[in-house]
């Protein structure tokens, strides 16, 4: 007799017909130009960082699936995306052994500890990066100038640091536009930022390419456009207000929008389907919260960049946002809702 089971699941119950696999595959395609530009600007170092991150995530996923006696889920592309995103958020000369650890942490702690794909509370790639940031704060804030002449010929020595040893960075380091602003009050030209002619994490530099990749997914209805719109909108408005109050202290809104990991975060990190709210209004609150937190951390915080923490914080809030804006059940009153 065939076993009959009743599947009980939370909303949404109506799907658009797109399977996880198709969406994931499209996200990978959309990220390919971003990765290609990062390899073009940072050379062979960026390629190695991205490949290591992906390999580490895929391997961890496979091993953990086997350990928990489930079918391997590496073919659904989600681990590949986690790895790709993790690689894109790391500095181009980040030691590979640290990248490897980051991938393991992202999948094991960010995804499997919560129950695997569909259950993760936080964006796994950002969990991996957050742990790396806390563990190796010096390595993760040592940047590398873009478009060096020998970038396709030589591998940076720090990349090949022996596992568990401190990397030694050669002299060529470059400040990111955000740290240059935070510590020396130098504003980078908006055009350079948009085109990606600056230093930064491997995949965050070219705002325009990230924007176009995101638009591709939005047009194909594989990404909720409200999230990036709410994030970028609130960053623009809030930093615009601050700029109008005192243009000497506060950076201009264009600089805010195009610098750091904001574009990459808004388009590809905050839009993680599992870790963001479900309702349209909830998504807008979620996006606005991220945008405000980014500006607050960048302007008043101790760190130059805050996109990662803003998104992780909003991830934690998203189930509560959904709960908060639930419409009242007809016939009940606010006061008697609990009873």
């Amino acid at each position: 007799m065939p076993a009959k089971t009743l599947h009980i699941s939370s909303s949404p119950h109506i799907s658009s017909g797109l399977s996880t696999e198709v969406i994931m595959k499209n996200v990978v395609w959309a990220l390919i130009p971003v990765a290609a530009f990062s390899i073009y600007s940072f050379g062979i170092n960026a390629l190695l960082v991205i490949l290591t991150a992906m390999g580490s995530c895929l391997l961890t996923e496979h091993v953990l699936c086997k350990l928990s006696k489930k079918d391997s889920t590496i073919s659904d592309w989600s681990a590949a995306i986690t790895g790709l995103l993790l690689g894109l958020t790391l500095p181009p000369i980040f030691p590979l052994w640290m990248v490897l650890c980051g991938g393991v942490i992202a999948i094991a702690l960010g995804k499997f500890a919560f129950g695997g794909l569909g259950y993760n509370v936080f964006n796994p790639a950002l969990v991996g990066r957050a742990v790396l940031q806390a563990a190796f704060p010096v390595a993760i804030t040592t940047w590398y100038p873009a478009f060096l002449d020998n970038r396709f010929a030589a591998i940076s020595s720090s990349l090949l640091t022996f596992p568990f040893m401190t990397p030694v960075f050669d002299g060529t380091s470059g400040a990111t536009p955000l740290s240059a602003f935070k510590f020396d009050h130098i504003t980078t030209d908006g055009m350079d930022l948009a085109l990606g002619l600056v230093s930064g994490s491997t995949g965050e530099t070219s705002a325009i390419i990230i924007l176009l990749s995101g638009l591709y997914l939005i047009v194909r209805k594989m990404m909720n456009w409200r999230i990036p719109a709410a994030i970028l909108g609130s960053v623009f408005v809030l930093s615009g207000i601050l700029y109008l109050i005192d243009s000497q202290i506060y950076p201009n809104p264009i600089f805010m929008l195009f610098s750091g990991g904001l574009m990459l975060g808004a388009m590809f990190m905050a839009t993680d389907m599992v870790a963001s709210p479900i309702t349209s209004l909830g998504v807008i609150i979620y996006g606005a919260f991220i945008g405000i937190m980014v500006v607050v951390i960048r302007v008043w915080g101790g760190l130059p960049e805050g996109v990662m923490y803003a998104i992780l914080l909003a991830n934690a809030l998203s189930p509560h946002i959904d709960k908060m804006i639930q419409p009242r059940v007809y016939g009940t009153h606010k006061s008697t809702k609990r009873g």
Partner: peptide
């Protein structure tokens, strides 16, 4: 207990 080039995992001495 490690050679001086050991990379400390700073996160471990933080509350996290």
């Amino acid at each position: 207990i490690f050679p001086s080039t050991f990379q400390n995992w700073i996160v471990m001495i933080l509350p996290a």
